[in-house]
């Protein structure tokens, strides 16, 4: 076991891990941050998406030791300081951008990274940017709508 230290949602955390401990496992089992979901564990579905130094990654395909010292952000770090939902999370609620909710943490993290790179994406750009996230309920339409709403664009013309 090796000691690993990193910053998660603004707090310095550390724990004992094996070489093979994945970032997803460290977050969930080491830190109890179970908002990061493990869907496929084969880097297909994107449910485990978190930010490492501001970039979206699939935490099931990154070793915890490889991101020692990094700034990690998970879904637990996305709400506003007063506990209210962030603009992006609120847009997911407003647009019903979730059905079973399993993919939602990854969708929110991937969408936040997408909007950081491209603050006013087109619908096609949102769909391209969310290519690495699967929704098993196939609720993509409202997810895309939520991201467009969060970007401040008018979504009234998009059919329900």
């Amino acid at each position: 076991m090796t000691k690993v230290t990193m910053t998660v949602n603004g707090k310095t955390v550390s724990g004992e891990v094996e070489g093979r401990t994945l970032l997803s496992g460290f977050l969930r089992e080491g830190l109890g941050l179970t908002g990061t979901h493990i869907g496929c564990d084969t880097s297909q579905c994107g449910a485990c998406t978190v930010h490492v130094n501001g970039r979206a990654v699939k935490s099931c395909t990154v070793f915890a030791l490889d991101v020692a010292g990094a700034e990690v952000k998970t879904i637990e770090g996305m709400a506003n300081a007063d506990g209210s939902l962030s603009v992006l999370q609120q847009a997911f609620q407003d647009c019903h951008g979730l059905q079973c909710g399993f993919c939602t943490p990854g969708m929110v993290m991937a969408s936040a990274a997408l909007l950081a790179d491209n603050p006013t994406p087109s619908e096609a750009e949102v769909r391209h940017g969310l290519e690495g996230n699967l929704c098993r309920c196939t609720g993509y339409h409202n997810i895309v709508k939520a991201v467009l709403q969060a970007s401040g664009q008018d979504i009234t013309a998009i059919p329900a």
Partner: peptide
């Protein structure tokens, strides 16, 4: 290549 998360790693 792949998707945005794959491209970041």
């Amino acid at each position: 290549i792949g998707d945005p998360m794959v491209r970041n790693r």
